[in-house]
Design a protein around this nucleic acid. Structure first.
Lengths: 338, 338
DNA sequence: TTTTCTTTTGAAAGCGCTTTCATACAGAGT
DNA sequence: ACTCTGTATGAAAGCGCTTTCAAAAGAAAA
């Protein structure tokens, strides 16, 4: 930390007031008379005063810092949510401290521990699955926590209905006449988002009296390459599916790439639907039918909710954002029965 | 901040030593006798002691926090670098404080100001262009700064030769016999990476005695959609190019999508090369010829360099990482002269 | 044995800010 | 005039840790 910085007491001297007054000018300006406030502000500007965050945190017990625990930053949906979160928090004077665990529960616990030690004022988490140790850390700390994407009932959270998303995508394909529908999700272990989407897909099939043979469901890395591999696997079956649902858009796009590389036409030979609605999904060819998940808004709303809780503002503490089917060009009627 | 936390003094009492000793057990364990150290550690573990970061920062003048100023997180290359950076820093006991400015210079200055006030121990920046105010803030603060991707001579930095990358991609196309080569970059204003790549492309053309007519160079958003638009623009020319260089892979992939959507075969009708080597670039169809930029390593090395500087360890303070041409399937011989 | 280091520990003074608590002084009410 | 508010400011006590500085206790040197 720069030790040559202007201190509050110097501003106080320059302005001819006590340190307490300068402190109030910063954090509770309405307590001061307009003249004093102006004088202090002038002095502060003149000296280029910047309060020391560590000292404020120590003295006030508030660090104006929120911790975010993400699975990874190396995925557009999370980095996008993060971006939105940080923009919103910045607006309210909070800073974001980021940690990512790469889908490891142990690493997640470590992230939480580190952020707690860092003295964050609140924690925003993605997903609701965590080991007992992590859960206990959170409970002990007594810090406000906002969960995103998924959460247990009652906990403050900004959610999307992942199951509904899986349902919408799959129903759409069923409505188009598909009967053999493949489902490629990311690993469902320690990933309740993917699990929910998978459940939704199953439910849609059950509703329609269809089944999901084990061969038609597979788990892959949540990457384009994973999508290609999963698609290859399904297409190599004796009875390949006529449609595939990807647990995330990247997987779905990988499916399209693989199918096209094999000379299949989309959607004539194979329909593909995703979930997420990445920016790029509208721009691939053919454009991807998907379920829109308001990723950035999750970030914004989680940040808002966090700040509201910290300020003791009343308001809903659980918010479910809608997901919508976006029909584009990658899905079409099932080929006539062969 | 949780006010119910165990304090250092309580550990001291439990261990029957002075607070100073507990403090040393944490930060300079070799100063203590093994027995004392063990006793203190046992007491700390037993009570579940976690030092308060704000208090440590205030007392020691070091926050063990590094600030990173990124253009955006909504781009795989930056989020990937960030991810690597944070992993490396975590290993050395540092935390990352992230701020992004979305390619706005004013916002960048504000980011820097905020991070400085936050009391970071050092700053990692992407790119070297910034307004005078920001540069002055940095100079005044006297904090160690590591720049990445681009930097002025002499400043501590982890670089890639963007110009060379542009050169490699373009030379490759020229070697394949292409003469009309289009160049689509991201906005070059306040983006020295894109500018460098563009310069490299020009230089390659000049080397070969070719020119880059203004119509064949365009700037687009650094997204897949931007690539599609730029490609559409170039293909609609009376004399369209036979090859296109994208300033980043996402643009190049957008070009492929657009060309394929128009029924063009790649690389038979149009060659496309990118720069970055995203994970997905190897998996699109056809796979993308590109220049590999060691994105994650930039993050890791920048973090390492930062820590080395903070520890006053000797070592090089500027590191240039190599970029390599990766020839894949999206580029091929120029079509015979029409 | 005495002196001189070293090594290990403790006492105490902050780090720069916030926040009671107390005080001073307006103006309002009687 | 005299209390009763309420508002604006200051004094001073920390927040939980680090870090001199000094002291105590051995070990090594003389």
């Amino acid at each position: 930390m720069a030790r040559n910085r202007i201190r509050l007491s110097e501003v106080a001297r320059e302005a001819g007031v006590s340190p307490a007054t300068v402190s109030r000018a910063i954090s509770q300006p309405d307590l001061l008379s307009p003249e004093t406030l102006a004088r202090v502000r002038r002095a502060a500007d003149h000296l280029g005063y910047r309060p020391d965050a560590a000292a404020r945190a120590l003295a006030s017990g508030r660090s104006m810092t929120i911790g975010a625990v993400m699975p990874t930053l190396d995925n557009a949906i999370f980095s996008k949510a993060l971006q939105a979160m940080q923009a919103q928090l910045a607006e309210d004077g909070y800073q974001l401290l980021v940690a990512s665990h790469d889908y490891s529960k142990a690493a997640e616990a470590e992230c939480i521990r580190t952020l707690l030690a860092r003295g964050v004022d609140g924690l925003i988490l993605v997903g609701a699955e965590r080991i007992a140790e992590a859960a206990q850390l959170l409970a002990q700390s007594g810090l406000p926590v906002v969960m995103t994407w998924c959460a247990p009932d009652g906990a403050p959270s900004v959610l999307v209905d992942n199951e509904h998303a899986g349902l919408l995508a799959t129903r759409h394909l069923i409505a188009l006449g598909h009967r053999r529908i493949g489902v490629i999700t990311g690993a469902t272990r320690f990933n309740d988002r993917q699990r929910g989407r998978y459940r939704g897909a199953r439910r849609a099939l059950e509703e329609a009296g269809l089944t999901l043979p084990p061969a038609l469901a597979c788990e892959q890395a949540t990457t384009l390459a994973g999508g290609r591999m999963g698609c290859a696997q399904l297409l190599d079956l004796a009875e390949p599916p006529t449609a595939i649902v990807g647990g995330i858009d990247l997987i779905a796009i990988g499916c399209m790439v693989e199918a096209q590389a094999r000379g299949l036409a989309i959607p004539a030979d194979l329909s593909v639907a995703g979930i997420d609605d990445l920016d790029m999904s509208a721009h691939v060819s053919p454009s991807l039918t998907t379920v829109h998940v308001p990723t950035a808004r999750i970030g914004t709303e989680a940040a808002r909710m966090m700040v509201a809780i910290l300020r003791d503002e009343p308001g809903p503490t659980t918010l479910t954002l809608p997901v919508d089917l976006i029909v584009r060009r990658s899905t079409g009627p099932a080929p006539a029965r062969g």
